[in-house]
Amino acid sequence: MTDGFSSLTTSAAGTGDAPAGTGPAGTGFASTALASRGLTKRYGSGQLAVDGIDLTVPAGSVYGFLGPNGSGKTTTIRMLLGLIRPTAGTHEVLGMPMPDAQAEALPLVGSLVEGPAFYPHLTGRGNLARFDAADRTARRATADARIDRALDRVGLLAAADKKYKAYSLGMKQRLGIATSLLRPRQLVILDEPTNGLDPQGTREVRTLIREIAADGTTVFVSSHLLAEVEQVCTDVGVMRAGKLVYQGPLAQLRGRGGGAARLLVRTRAPELAVRVLGELGLAGVAQAGREVTAELGALLPEDVCARLVHAGVPVAGLETPRRSLEDEFVELTGEGFDVD
């Protein structure tokens, strides 16, 4: 929380000056960019898509909103943005109650919901101009410059005058992100921004997220692929079947269940290694081919290595693999992440 707080450096004058005016409630400042209480959506069919989730997205954070496909991420995002009416619960965007204050809150929020959607017969530039024109608070006088800048940030300036239908999937995705950058934002919500992108494109999106966040903007990014967001997130929320099963700083999640550190030895004499490790009193010694694993317990890996070498084990490699974040997620979500 404090991280986000301090990253929001400001040019606003001292506290005695005019209120920051972030909301009718006059809160002036929201330390949470997004907050929900008991947010629930039950569709007409009776399907409970989102089941009473309490989101807290610290201002200034990069929040990874994770979960398998169909776990309710997009429905949640649609509710947060006022596209879908919640069945129950309340939520705030930048400290402003939704949906009452959406006319004030949403201009400060850039979003890409469920993939890019644009007019195929318009150019990239024309599409951005269209969305900018729909914004009553955006100025015509600065539109061209802002559109060029947004296109430049996502690397589409060269293709600005190509028709959208001629864009590749990666370019479409980037144009979607450009829309969210048309104006200075306090919060950017990106729903599956890397969907359909090749590894190169995925890396570009990650870089872009880092850049956006570096400006102090809160980034809320959803994904069903943990690895895509793991490197950029400071905080995560994990959805499973409509419920928020975990929420908190990424580091905390990493630490979860990390108590039992493991040891992995690679050697061409695995049987010998097994025996030595057993003599050392390590628990859970197991052999798989030329790899031997065991629970490190209280011992230090360098000491174990010395004993192995001393006992004549030809150690080709020795690691203390951290319990992977992926394992945590599989545990939290109860299933593997899709591999598409």
Binding site: T10, F29, P184
Partner: peptide, 16 residues
């Protein structure tokens, strides 16, 4: 911009 009180921090610089 002047170093400002953090409580006005919801205002992001570029908005100004």
């Amino acid at each position: 911009s002047p170093a400002a009180g953090r409580h006005a921090a919801a205002v992001r610089p570029r908005l100004d």
